[in-house]
Design a protein around this nucleic acid. Sequence first.
DNA 1: CCGCGAAACTAAACCGGTATAGCTTGACCC
DNA 2: GGGTCAAGCTATACCGGTTTAGTTTCGCGG
Lengths: 349, 349
Amino acid sequence: MAQRKPTITDVARTAGVSKGLVSFALNDKPGVSPETRKRILDIAGDLGWRPSLSARSLSTSTSYALGLVIRRKAEVISADPFFPAFIAGVESVLAEEGRALVLSVVPDAAAELRSYRTLAGDNRVDGVFLTDLRNADERFGLLAELGLPAVALGRPDPAVPFPSVQLDDTRGIAEAVAHLASLGHSRIAHVAGDPHMMHGGRRRSSFDDAMRDAGLDPALVVETDFSASSGADATRRLLDDVRPPTAIVYANDPMAIAGLGVAQQRGLRVPHDLSITGFDGTDISGYVYPALTTITSDPVEWGRVAARSLLELVASGSVDSVELPPASLLIRASTGPAPSHRGSDAAHS
Amino acid sequence: MAQRKPTITDVARTAGVSKGLVSFALNDKPGVSPETRKRILDIAGDLGWRPSLSARSLSTSTSYALGLVIRRKAEVISADPFFPAFIAGVESVLAEEGRALVLSVVPDAAAELRSYRTLAGDNRVDGVFLTDLRNADERFGLLAELGLPAVALGRPDPAVPFPSVQLDDTRGIAEAVAHLASLGHSRIAHVAGDPHMMHGGRRRSSFDDAMRDAGLDPALVVETDFSASSGADATRRLLDDVRPPTAIVYANDPMAIAGLGVAQQRGLRVPHDLSITGFDGTDISGYVYPALTTITSDPVEWGRVAARSLLELVASGSVDSVELPPASLLIRASTGPAPSHRGSDAAHS
DNA sequence: CCGCGAAACTAAACCGGTATAGCTTGACCC
DNA sequence: GGGTCAAGCTATACCGGTTTAGTTTCGCGG
């Protein structure tokens, strides 16, 4: 019963035509009469014919797959809520296009470059997504050398020689700072991400800008690697200051949650004594206490759009950059009036 | 400068032999004299020859890739810290074997089955990992029909017709219950996972067993879908009871964190009024306040072992099931003596 | 010194598609 | 009525490996 998968030759034989013609018919190429084309398609359907991916790959040297290389240490990978959601978005598009996603998780820069080389050399993917853009990114040159199409994720930047799917996350930071300033906060700190990553640096500089716009001093900034533990460390450092901040803007949710933990451990009430904002709008951020005021983007949609862009780029050789709706502030319970505006409760702790 | 990738024919030509012989030499097949073999290998190395994956796939009908299908809705995928870590473990093994991981994220059962069919039909992967085992799992029959090798993740179960990589998570639950009982808790509740998933049901039944072993009544159980929001709901339900529990054992960390949030919102102090345990030992669980007592497994190692098993299964046609070190209790700050043992503070709230 | 078998190697088929060159056929034009 | 051209189709090369059948070479026993 379970017989061999039919090949294009089987279709040709039963249709009484050459296999070349079958190939034309199936790929909507000219040179086939409408009746014959229909007959061939019908027969292919009846036989349950499905093209062989490897045969097609061999003759067209395309793989019908896209690649995503994530450079992140195994210990901290779970802390980043962006990727699973992004991948889910990518998949929703690829599934209906019959494409697959090849994922590669690597611990360091050397392995990362090796991974791109292998993906390209093995012709395993037709294009790749470029995330976590860094300043002076070594990948730009490599991908150009390999001739691998790529779509970058992040803000437009003249230094990025690829089409990109952009999301303005600076607006969210600006909103957060404005929100806090309007609540009377003046000592607002920023727990920044990795300065070597573009989004880390960008969020930081937009923090600087927003602070200056509010007439405040953006001096309280601590750099981290985006991990929860570094977020906790940074928080401790800030709170140990002789004049600790009354509000902290974190560059991602896990760090904000860790910061919340540190504050509570020290007996500070949030937002009574300290206001906190996160970044990402992760599921869990709505369920901690107090629920986190955070800056939301839509990583699922980001994945969808990026997938469509990369497919387009692979198919046509070029694609326009896309700008997604900017990240915006979601105000929940972790932000409130600055302590000094209600008295000096915090001093008693 | 950047010239065409050398093919096996190029190697054969420069070595002055037939390409068949080159293939033999490169694959360690008999019928090649030692000197000739060395010469061929040297030349292949000099030329920088790398076999073409698609050509090899076509003639051997193997893809040198493994598949992982994750069935999870886009909105909740980020809540599950297991997969990123598991994938990182898988990748660490695949990278050194020159294999790739093809990932598929699907929202529902129909898409899941379609995904396996496509992966197999396209010969996109040589084998798959089977996670989130369910009772009467439809995938078992499908994979058998497709002839796709699979390694299951979970506890051994006679109903699972595949070799598996097992981790005894019941022991952790038992330890958690014993720990709480020894602290004087008697009204211990369980926020269980999805009962249709094997690990959900298993954790629940091991909770039942552990409670009975401690001479307690395992009546307070709420079933969820493992998401943070359902964990919060379940917690509210339990705390609304006329005789609320003094300790809650959660089936995963995100639900425990959400539960912690609910408790704090109601003015309950953890662990003073309510003890809480999580499950998974996620990074973030150590940074909430109070730090979560949780049951730790090692998903990265799980991924490594599973990858090795599946590779072995694909290569040799069979592999023994593997048992990993059992999950164990990591006691942190979210568990403490039962309220009644210190007085009736909780009653005042 | 012949015959035989194994070792070393070659030639060619094969996997299942795509792409190109060439062959028929019929319509159209002058 | 012969020439031209396009449409429709066939035959075949090709992608780059693997694998099988067949050929040459050589050592060795009788």
